[in-house]
């Protein structure tokens, strides 16, 4: 997804002189061409995430369209107050683009994992929160949202899927299967590919969200009369879905604990039951409990 981010921002910058890139000394190698093409609009500003956000807000205040980028936990959790006040409360827009979440840095442990970013940023009034699942979604959503004056969060992954799930429009969930089943599985981001595999031969409805704020309430409400299992490798999606009142929901993903294992993203997901087999077992169990 970082390559797609580079390509999309490069294309936007060629057309729009207000596009600026600010890096926290991450993904720098991806932006050599951008730096060559737009030297005054490329700033590798160092490892000072709160200031990266304040500077982003200040640039937005003066009419630019900044993209600020580094690793997810540092640019969101460490900087929550800068995002809340400098961007949110001040109504200064800008694009926060992260890498690493949830477990792209699986081998580094809990300091580099990010599963609180989505719920934290969803709390901020006026904030848009996007978890693309594919590079195509990155491209479409970045182009449609980057200059709208709002603070927008793009949570990128190094493990996108490459499925064509239908037309991508900001704020609209994708209904992948509507079988009239009593159980609906809802997910978000790249994990949808794993969810599809795990549910391949199960009779369930299936919905994925790339936009967590604003959540697509109409689509969620359409499945109000089913039991909804939220399958997600982070927090935030179940809270978003429950903005729609009167639902019967449960969650399969993280426990109330730090994720302590190492290995690859697949190892960590498997340990959490977020591999195809684990998801299949969780959905099957949920369907039995609900029947």
């Amino acid at each position: 997804m970082r390559r797609q981010f580079r390509d999309t921002v490069g294309a936007l910058a060629a057309e729009d002189e207000r596009v600026v890139v600010i890096l926290g000394d991450v993904s720098v190698y991806q932006f050599f061409a951008f730096k060559q093409a737009h030297p005054t609009r490329f700033h590798n500003m160092g490892i000072c995430e709160p200031t990266l956000i304040s500077v982003t807000a200040g640039m937005s205040a003066r009419g630019l369209h900044p993209f600020v980028h580094t690793i997810a936990p540092f640019l969101t959790e460490r900087c929550f107050e800068q995002i809340k006040l400098d961007m949110g409360y001040n109504r200064f827009g800008g694009n926060i683009v992260t890498c690493g979440a949830s477990f792209d840095y699986a081998w580094d442990g809990a300091t580099h994992h990010a599963y609180y970013d989505l719920p934290l940023l969803r709390l901020i009034p006026g904030m848009e929160v996007i978890q693309p699942g594919s590079e195509h979604e990155v491209d479409v959503l970045m182009r449609s949202q980057y200059a709208n004056g709002r603070p927008t969060y793009f949570r990128l992954s190094d493990h996108p899927h490459d499925l064509d799930l239908g037309p991508v429009r900001f704020g609209e969930a994708l209904v992948l299967r509507d079988e009239g089943a009593p159980v609906t599985v809802m997910t978000a981001g790249p994990l949808v590919a794993t969810v599809l595999e795990g549910c391949r031969d199960l009779s369930v409805n299936l919905v994925t969200h790339h936009t967590l704020k604003p959540i697509d309430r109409a689509t969620v409400a359409r499945f109000r009369d089913t039991a909804i299992l939220v399958v997600h490798d982070g927090h935030g999606l179940r809270e978003a879905i429950n903005e729609v009142g009167g639902l019967r929901t449960a969650y399969h993903g993280l426990e109330d604990d730090f994720v302590g294992g190492y290995g690859t993203v697949h190892d960590v997901r498997a340990a959490l039951g977020l591999d195809p087999a684990g998801i299949r077992a969780a959905v099957t169990r949920f369907a039995e409990e609900m029947s």
């Binding site: 600026v20 005054t40 609009r41 700033h43 709160p50 200031t51 956000i53 304040s54 500077v55 982003t56 807000a57 200040g58 640039m59 937005s60 205040a61 003066r62 009419g63 630019l64 107050e81 800068q82 006040l85 400098d86 001040n90 200064f92």
Partner: peptide
């Protein structure tokens, strides 16, 4: 209001004016 924010915003504004 919360301390340590305004100077970063001012820095971003000054950098924006350089870019512009």
């Amino acid at each position: 209001g919360s301390l340590g924010h305004g100077i970063g915003l001012a820095t971003g504004m000054a950098l924006a004016e350089k870019i512009l």
